[in-house]
Design a binder for these strands. Structure first.
Lengths: 190, 190
DNA sequence: GAGGACATGTAATGTGTTACATGATTAA
DNA sequence: TTAATCATGTAACACATTACATGTCCTC
């Protein structure tokens, strides 16, 4: 009965702090809220909720529906909320970085520069599309949740996404230019 | 005998493309080269090399030393180099994002803004120190590897680190200011 | 003589995704 | 009728870290 540590159960507690929900709801909510920087699969969510319930941090209520399977709605207990707060105060644990694009780029000397160029191009497009998405989300968020006290925090997480993607767009453009130079030098003289 | 897919064995091949090495060497080299965006533990490296050798992608030579344990030096075979090139050309697989700082910040409404402020402060400091490190690495890299054809690629990966950390520093400062505003509003008049 | 670098490897454990299994309802 | 959405959950697998186990050489 450890239950300390791991971010996943605490993420579940955090989401339940927004209101009672089923495992299925949680999955959907993740995608509409923290999806840009967090994800959980059903294989984590369902067993996770079960363990949290066994530890008394959440409470389960079963809603019967004719025909379709029962809905298991979980809600935070006082203990659960306390546990969440305690975790929130703990220092953030830095994750081991893993960036496959950079890994491939680092070994770019093994292939033609155009290969790396394509990878960077794809990365550029993904960040440009993220930037568009962030703009849209900020708009609806401000419209629909104007007086929610948590809104400022949600906007801060969005803002990081924007800063990051903008920086990545800039890096991609510079890097593609440099890769073009390498390609030309290869084909051209010497 | 799949051996396709996973980035880890390909990272090993990539490092061996820089020259023959032992598992121990690989670990050290990772920290001095791709450590900012990749990492591998011995528990991955040693069994990984064994599997690559079984698949004929690397070759193992044992150097006997009196007293100390044998050194197992691995080098790329032609097959291994070919496999590496093929993987480099494959599109980059985007990883599921996981950012614990953002997760905590998203639920920042559950605790005092000063808690979030401290997390952001720590993040700021870590990126400022990264920026200093990147500057130092770029300097030594240009001094010691001036004519290595792979240098431009190494500098590109460094450059992403710089763009990213600079953006994060900016975001941290803005976000800390916003958190201070929230804190003041909380203490001050309703 | 204590500690750290050198050097290899395995076992236990943790963490996470994907595929599978089941089945109703609803929209194209 | 085909597919998507709703809804729950397990099992198999993949991937990764950490602790353990062992032992030498070198430096303070």
């Amino acid at each position: 009965m450890k239950m300390e540590g791991g971010a996943t159960p605490n993420a579940l507690l955090g989401l339940l702090s927004l209101g009672p929900m089923s495992g299925y709801d949680i999955r959907q909510l993740i995608q509409r809220s923290i999806g840009h920087f967090w994800s959980e699969s059903y294989g984590q969510i369902y067993p996770g909720l079960k363990r949290l319930a066994a530890a008394g941090l959440v409470e389960k209520k079963t809603e019967r529906k004719k025909g379709s399977p029962d809905r298991h709605v979980y809600s935070l207990t006082a203990d659960g909320r306390e546990r969440l707060r305690r975790w929130l105060k703990l220092p953030v644990e830095e994750a081991v970085p893993r960036n496959e694009l950079l890994l491939k780029l680092f070994f770019g000397g093994q292939v033609s520069p155009s290969v790396s160029r394509e990878h960077v191009q794809a990365y550029l497009e993904s960040h440009e599309s993220k930037l568009r998405a962030y703009g849209a989300i900020a708009k609806t968020l401000r419209k629909e949740e104007t007086n929610d006290p948590q809104l400022p925090f949600w906007l801060m997480t969005l803002s990081m996404g924007r800063h990051n993607s903008a920086a990545m767009v800039k890096w991609c453009k510079e890097t593609m230019a440099e890769l073009d130079r390498l390609e030309r030098r290869r084909k051209g003289g010497k």
